[in-house]
Every structure is written in C-alpha cells, then in structure tokens.
Design a protein around this nucleic acid. Structure first.
Lengths: 253, 253
DNA sequence: GCTCGTATTAGACCAGTCGTCTACAAGTCC
DNA sequence: GGACTTGTAGACGACTGGTCTAATACGAGC
C-alpha cells in the first residue's frame, strides 16, 4: 500500500479482481487459493440480454432483489463480516445454490449492496430536489428531514449501510471502495447544486463556497448518523438540523 | 435537543454480560450458548493484586499490551469481525493459548481495545488542553491539527478504531456500546469546556451554546474521519479545519 | 531434590465460514 | 419429443473462527 491514487470513480460493478486479502500471513498458511481467473455470475449477462430483447422475464421474479433486501437488513444490523451468507439466504428464503447464480462472490454481493443503497438514496434525493414548487433551501431541508423521519420510524440502529460497509471493507476491497467513493461524490455534487440554487435565490449567504459547504454538510450528516448509532437515538440528527438550518445557513450578512 | 442524557459514563470494563447476539435468528440455530455465568480472565485479579503489593512483576512483561497493540493495528485495518484472533496473536508473537489468560472473550478484548484507544486519546487531549500558555481557541485548534498530522504520518487508512468498532459492534454488543458511548461523552465534554473558555476569552461568539457546538464539532470531525477513509486522503480533515476555524468559529458578531 | 500451586501455553475442538459441485425443474427452440 | 439454457436445490469440502481442556514452565517451601 502506501499509494493513494484515485481510480476513476465511475466504473464500479463488474469483475471482482480479488484484491489483497490474505497476503499478510507471516507464517504458515501462505497460498490458499487455486483460482486465478475471475469468476462471473452467469446471470448478469443473461439479465442484460433479456432486458435488451424485451422479454417478459417470467422467471427470476425477485430472487436477486430478495437476497439484496435481506442482505441489506442483516448487514445493517451485524456488519458485513458479521453476516454469513447462510443467514442472509435463510432470511431471503433462497437456497445457497442460487446465490452464486446471481453474484460472483460475497465481495461482489457487497458491491451490489452498496450500489443498490446508493441508487435508492440518490433517486429519492433527486426526486426531492426536482420539486420545483418549493424553494431550494426548503428542498434541501426536506432531504434531511425525510431521512430523519425514516430513521425515527425504523429505529436508530438501521439505516446507512454505506458508511458501515465503507469503514468495514473499504480498506480491503477495492471494488467496494470504488462504489462507496462514487456514491459520496454524487451525493456531494447534488447537495452543492441545491446550495447554488439557494444562493441564487438569496436564501444562503454567497460567502460560502457551494462545493466546500456541500462537503461539510455531508460530513456533518455522516457524523450525525454515526453518532445516532452510538447514542441509539435520533437526537444527533436533530442537532444536525438545528445547527445547519438555524445557525449555519441563515448567516444573513 | 431532546434527549442525550448521560447514564453514568464511568463503569464499562469488567464482566461481559453476553448481550443479545443471535436472538434474531428466524429459523434453526436459536440458542447457541451454554454458558450462563460470566467468565473472567484469570489474569486480571492477579495483575491487580500484584500491582497492589508492589511486586516487580518480572513475568508478564507486556504480553497483554502486545496483544492490544497488534489488535488495534489489525482491527483498524480489517475491522473487528474481519480480524481473527489467530492473526492478531501471530503478529503479537503470542501463542494462541495465552489469549484467554488475558481476556475473557473476543468481545472483552474489543472493549479493552476501545478503552485503550479512548484513554490514549483523551489523555493526549487533556495534555493539549491544559497548556495554559496558549489561548483556548489555539489549544482547541491544536487538538485537531495534531490528529491531522498523525493521520498524515500514518496514512489515512489507519486511526480511529473507535467509530469503526462503534459501527461494527455497537449494534450487537452492549459492553462495547457502553465503552464507545462513554468515550464520546467525555470527548464532547472536554471540547465543550474549551469552548467555554474560548468564549470567556472572547475568541468565540457567545451566541453558540458550548455543549451543542461541541457536539457539532465532534460529529463533523467524525464525519471527516469517515470521509478520510473513503477518499483515502486527509483532504476532509483539512476541510474540517478550514471550515471550523476560518468560517464557523470566528463569527465575529 | 522433591512437591505443590500458580502463570502460561499447546493444541484439540466443533460450529460456522465461503465457495463448489452435481442433480434436478422449468422454460425455449429445433 | 429432445437438446438447450436458466434457475433452484442442497449436500459437500477445505478451511478458519473463537473457545476450552490438558499439560507445561516456573518459583516457593520443606
């Protein structure tokens, strides 16, 4: 390691690559894998071609999605390494054999999990942000308030598998890391855009640089989310809202 | 703010308690543990009595500490569940059999890890904050700048096992959760204290409530730390410093 | 030197891990 | 109907996980 680099935030899904995993062993085991070539899920190509040809796709009702949903729930609760495939699949009501039909490996599955969460979240964000009848600042606020409400509904211990997976696996697995990084960049960019609109509308002081401010908001929100899990209370999210919208942004000056 | 509360942050170490772990299983396994009483490390009592009697303690040179150090490094890199005892002990140069002489369980070990990190960090904080010859605001700044410098030295992927352990295990293990919560409360309290001093010295606007502001700083810093791991760059920490000390605090008004 | 009691270690243990493999059911095309 | 592909099904294997018992190393007392 030692490097840092930034390998093109786009491309995330696809081939695994099998990053450095057990290469640290100092003593006995040494080489453990005989595989050299990357496995591929078999189903991905099929799915793509089927979609392309517009077939009704009677089968594969939602197996893949069921696995992902169960995985998201369990990983959210017990972490990625803490969740075994067996339990995920048991909850999804899907046999083991099907898993490797849809995903190349557990790591692949992790990437898919992140992409799913990211797409879902960013979509809801875009929905909120495109509500043209509300002012930019009010739209921005609604984003966070809605997430807060959701956390309130689901209990403070769920939610936000992205930072969880990020901290847990990003040090190890490059594909997961890339997916997470990409998610954050898009998120930040969206926020920056609303901030610009809010500034144009005179709702936010122009002294703030939109990109930096967006990064700060994202970081603060993430910190609040972490704190929420630690305190097991959504208080931190309220603190976030109060600080950002009552103190920080309306810097009328 | 709502809640926050403060349930006696002291007491964290000691008996484990074996919190709810597998109680969520829907299907087969169900009960997995046969133990009801808490195990105890055997060595803890000995250590205590030895220390009490002032013996030179020739044996146990630093075995426990070596395990902790190796554990902190590995857990920081691969997460708690991702780090096996075998590898930790191998790195520490300690035989596997010795582990349960010093720790009651892996969970106990996790608590010890957090307490070690917390004590170390809070101690350095107190050192910084008690430097009477510097102004409060400058002391506050030096805290974060020093940590930034350390991250710069060690690379952005290490550091901060506390939020890592927090997100990874706090959902499951009550003792770990308690230790983490305690750490944050103390941290926040320390920051709030400096803020008060800075306000008294006229360095920070009195319009801020010290406790809330401290919480915000901690959350933002935590978010920056998470982001640092994701970006694999200390840029977020710089953003933090710039925002807090150039924009947020000097709200001269 | 021998025994005894404690501090420490070696290695067995089994549950659980991810991943593979073969067998089978269902749908589609010739 | 038979040869494909797509997806389901779960047993199986090699391996590692944390845990614990049985044995060692070591120092004190006689």
């Amino acid at each position: 390691m030692g490097n840092v680099t930034a390998p093109a935030p786009g491309q995330t899904s696809g081939a695994s690559g099998q990053s450095a995993a057990g290469s640290t062993a100092t003593g006995s085991n040494g080489a453990s894998a005989k595989n050299g070539a990357a496995r591929q899920p078999k189903a991905a190509a099929a799915r793509a071609s089927r979609r392309r040809s517009g077939a009704p796709a009677v089968s594969e009702p939602d197996t893949r999605e069921r696995i992902l949903a169960a995985g998201a729930a369990l990983v959210g609760a017990k972490g990625f390494n803490g969740s075994g495939l067996s339990e995920i699949l048991e909850r999804a009501g899907v046999p083991k054999g099907s898993f490797y039909h849809y995903f190349g490996s557990k790591e692949d599955f992790g990437v898919a999990l992140i992409e799913r969460a990211r797409d879902e979240y960013l979509d809801s964000l875009r929905t909120h942000l495109s509500e043209r009848k509300r002012s930019p600042l009010s739209r921005l606020r609604s984003i966070f308030e809605d997430t807060r409400a959701e956390c309130d509904r689901n209990g403070p211990t769920v939610e936000c598998i992205i930072p969880k997976l990020a901290l847990e696996t990003a040090t190890l697995s490059d594909p997961v890391h890339a997916a997470v990084k990409c998610a954050y960049q898009q998120w930040s960019a969206l926020i920056a855009q609303v901030i610009r609109e809010a500034q144009a509308a005179g709702e936010v002081a122009r002294s703030h640089d939109p990109d930096h401010l967006a990064d700060v908001l994202v970081m603060l929100w993430e910190g609040a989310a972490v704190r929420m899990q630690i305190d097991r209370s959504i208080g931190p999210l309220d603190d976030f809202l109060a600080f950002v919208f009552d103190t920080l942004l309306p810097a009328r000056r």
